[in-house]
C-alpha cells in the first residue's frame, strides 16, 4: 500500500516528468506525421479553443465568442508574426510589443501567452478565481508575464500603443507595436482621437488590427450603432488599411500580416481589418452575439470540445 508521502512523491515526480514526456510525444507525433509548420499552428489553434472553452466553463463566466474568433490571429501573432524575446520584460526593448485593447477576450490571450511560454499552462486553471494572476480582464497589477497594460474598460488600447510606439522611436528601437481592438469598441470616441493623432504624427511603427466580427453585446454592430465604412474612415484619417478577408484562416492571416509589416516605416500607421467569425470553431457559437459573454454549460462544453479534439494536451 502507498503511504501518503509516497503518493505525493510519485505525484510530484510525475508532474515534473509529464511536460517532458508530452514534448517528446509531440515531437514523435510531428515526425511521424511529418506535420508542416502550418499544421502545427493549426493544432495549436485547436488546443487554444479548448483552453478558452474550459477556462470560461469552469468559472461560468468570461467571454468565449470574441476569444474563439481571434484564436488564429493570436496564434499567428505570437508564433510567427512578432519578433519577441523569450523572457518577458515590461520595457520590451528590442522586441515587438502587443496590446490587447478589447480586454474581455482575455481567455484567448491567456491561452496563447501560456502556450508561448510566458507562464505555466496549468495556471489557466485559475482563470477568474480569487487570488489569481489571471484576472477577468488582463492586468499588470498581479504581475502576469506578457501583460503590459490593464484593459477591460474599452477604447484605450490604441492610445497606449501610440505612446509605446513613440518611445520605440525615441529609443532608436525599430521594432513594431501591435494592437487588437474590437469592432464595437471602435464606437468609443477616444479611438478616433488616437487614430487622428497617429496619422497626424506619422506613427508608422504601429499596426492596429480590428476584430471585425460584426457583433457586440446588444446585437450586431449594425443594429447597435452602425459605423458605416470603417475602411473609408481610417483612410480618411490618413491610415494605410489592409483587409484580411479570411480572418480565421492561418495562411491568410500570415500573408496579410506580412503585407502589413511591409507597409510600416512609410509615414503612415497601418490598420488591418480582420474579418472574423465570432465563436469560430464551435458550430452553435458561431455568427451570433449570444456567446459574447456567456459560458457553456456541461453538455455544451462537451459538444464544443468534441468538435475540437485535444491536440497538444489539455492543461
Amino acid at each position: 500500500m502507498l503511504t501518503k508521502t509516497n503518493k505525493s512523491l510519485i505525484t510530484a515526480i510525475y508532474s515534473i516528468l509529464l511536460p517532458f514526456y508530452n514534448t517528446v510525444l509531440l515531437q514523435l507525433k510531428n515526425q511521424s506525421t511529418n506535420m508542416s509548420d502550418i499544421q502545427k499552428l493549426e493544432a495549436l489553434v485547436i488546443q487554444v479553443r479548448r483552453d478558452i472553452l474550459r477556462q470560461v466553463h469552469k468559472v461560468n463566466s468570461g467571454h468565449p465568442g470574441g476569444s474563439l474568433g481571434c484564436a488564429e490571429f493570436f496564434v499567428a501573432l505570437y508564433q510567427e508574426v512578432m519578433d519577441r524575446k523569450e523572457e518577458f520584460s515590461m520595457d520590451g526593448k528590442d522586441e515587438d510589443l502587443f496590446f490587447l485593447s478589447n480586454g474581455h477576450i482575455s481567455p484567448v490571450f491567456y491561452s496563447v501567452l501560456a502556450r508561448s511560454g510566458y507562464f505555466p499552462v496549468e495556471e489557466l486553471n485559475t482563470f477568474r478565481l480569487l487570488n489569481s494572476r489571471l484576472q477577468g480582464h488582463p492586468t499588470t497589477h498581479e504581475g502576469l508575464p506578457g501583460i503590459r497594460m490593464a484593459s477591460g474598460s474599452l477604447g484605450q488600447g490604441i492610445s497606449v500603443a501610440i505612446g509605446a510606439a513613440q518611445v520605440k522611436k525615441l529609443n532608436n528601437d525599430n521594432h513594431l507595436v501591435y494592437v487588437l481592438c474590437g469592432d464595437g469598441e471602435l464606437q468609443e470616441g477616444q479611438n478616433w482621437e488616437a487614430i487622428m493623432y497617429a496619422a497626424g504624427n506619422k506613427v508608422d511603427n504601429l499596426i492596429v488590427s480590428i476584430d471585425l466580427n460584426g457583433q457586440q453585446i446588444d446585437g450586431s454592430t449594425d443594429t447597435v450603432l452602425p459605423m458605416g465604412n470603417i475602411q473609408g474612415k481610417f483612410e480618411a484619417f490618413g491610415w494605410d488599411v489592409i483587409n484580411i478577408e479570411k480572418g480565421n484562416d492561418l495562411e491568410a492571416i500570415l500573408s496579410g500580416m506580412k503585407t502589413a509589416k511591409a507597409k510600416t516605416g512609410n509615414g503612415k500607421p497601418i490598420c488591418v481589418l480582420l474579418h472574423t467569425v465570432m465563436g469560430n470553431g464551435v458550430d452553435f457559437m458561431m455568427h451570433t452575439h449570444a456567446w459574447h459573454g456567456k459560458a457553456p454549460n456541461d453538455e455544451q462544453l462537451e459538444d464544443a470540445l468534441s468538435q475540437n479534439p485535444e491536440t497538444l494536451g489539455d492543461y
Binding site: S61, G62, Q135, G136, H137, A150, G152
Partner: peptide, 8 residues
C-alpha cells in the same frame, strides 16, 4: 460585480 475583476 465579481469575476470581471478590478477594471469593472
Amino acid at each position: 460585480l465579481g469575476e470581471d475583476g478590478a477594471t469593472h
